[in-house]
Simulated assay, not measured.
Amino acid sequence: MTGAPLGRPGDGGTWLPPLVDAHVHLGLVDPVAVRRGGIAVVHDLGWVPDVARRWPGTPGFPEVAFAGAFLTAPGGYPSDRSWAPTGSVEEVATPDEAVAAVDRQVAAGASFVKVALHSDAGPVPDDVTLAALVGHAHARGRDVVAHVEGQGMAARAFEAGVDRFAHAPFSEHLRDDLLRAMARPRASARPRPDSPRPDAEHDPARRRTRPGGRKEPDNDPHVVFGGAGVSWVSTLDVHGWGSPRAEQGVAVDNVRRFVALGGTVVYGTDLGNGPLPLGVNPRELRALAAAGLDAHDLVAALTRDAPAGRRTPARAPHVETGRRNAALATWVPGDPPDPDDPDDVAAWLARAVVVERDRATDPAPGQEFPDADPDPDEPGTDPDPDPEG
């Protein structure tokens, strides 16, 4: 792939789609600094819903999609963590409670739902409650992100139909046959958002496909994690913050084998959890490169969840939000990197600048930035670091 373009070159730099950090706790960091550091879109994976709902559209912030509260078993992770403020955790003990909790997150504007399956830190939802949570989220048109930690939790989440892991699994080396199943696209359709909620929604949903994007009857935009059976957020650097612990080695090994089997891994840092850079994290990118991702793959991992219309030029699929025209884009000044040098690629991406759409659509002559597809339907640092976040 030597010499292959990583983006659309402009006058003195390169245009890219918006860069996305798919695992952030925005309430623990300075959102303005995150955007200044080159991140245009964040997925907030757990906070107080009434606070999170005010973030999207705030001037100077990245674009925000959020999960709302962590859904967990009574007494489960992270209900006992000092960094989790009152209202950021909902404990669910029964299927009915899980269904009601999902509905509350959707009512708050959540783009997806997060469930905690951390068996090393306390109780986790039982099988029936987890199935009800996942099934009802899907019936409401929301994908499910899971924190999986502890022996067997990754397999259990996958069997329950979870769409994305908040971390590349790091507490066990996953079997190749399990990785192969996780990497396979799902083959049967998800229920329509407006369909009634039958008992069958408790059925594991891991064979469904994901349409490219859709809206609820209430027209709330939300993210759809398209593509593979279950995608992973990387969060490799959080295991040591530059001084890798054993968990990072396990996670890198899992990522290497998962990607080799066709699995999807997106860039995410668990920002807010310890001393992580506010913006693009070159250590995270170098760890992904160590797991076998080449320069194109790194750009794809950073842009796969970019809003529709800002598609990565490097063969990667994308995720659509309900919003068709991205307001932000990315400009990387200077010459493109040597694509065969991971350090050079990481340092180059760390120079990224978030640019407003009106500036991004006026690049150098003859170097058109890729415009949105037409849509016929529309005219800091955690003071109490916790590697399990």
Rank of each mutant, 00 (worst) to 15 (best):
A52F: 09
A52W: 06
A52H: 06
A52S: 15
R53M: 12
R53I: 07
R54W: 08
R54E: 13
W55G: 08
W55N: 05
W55D: 06
P56M: 11
P56C: 11
P56F: 11
P56I: 11
G57V: 11
T58R: 14
P59H: 04
P59T: 08
P59I: 13
G60R: 03
F61L: 06
F61W: 15
F61I: 07
E63Y: 11
E63P: 02
V64G: 09
A65E: 12
F66D: 05
F66K: 05
F66Y: 14
F66C: 12
G68C: 11
G68A: 10
A69M: 11
F70N: 10
F70Y: 15
L71V: 09
L71E: 01
T72Y: 05
A73F: 01
A73Q: 02
A73K: 02
P74F: 03
G75H: 07
G76L: 07
G76P: 04
G76M: 07
Y77G: 01
Y77V: 01
P78I: 07
D80V: 05
R81N: 05
R81Q: 15
R81F: 08
R81L: 14
R81G: 08
R81A: 15
S82P: 08
W83Q: 14
A84F: 02
P85V: 12
P85A: 10
T86Y: 05
G87C: 09
S88Y: 04
S88P: 12
S88T: 09
V89A: 06
V89R: 01
V89N: 01
V89Q: 02
E90R: 15
E90T: 15
E90Q: 13
E90L: 14
E91G: 00
E91F: 03
A93V: 08
A93Q: 00
T94L: 06
T94H: 03
P95W: 04
D96F: 00
D96L: 11
E97P: 01
A100N: 01
A100Y: 00
A100K: 00
V102G: 06
V102N: 01
D103P: 02
D103C: 07
R104S: 14
R104W: 07
Q105H: 08
Q105E: 15
V106M: 06
A107M: 03
A107D: 14
A107N: 04
A110K: 05
F112H: 15
F112S: 14
F112G: 04
F112T: 13
K114Y: 12
K114H: 09
V115K: 00
V115W: 02
V115Y: 02
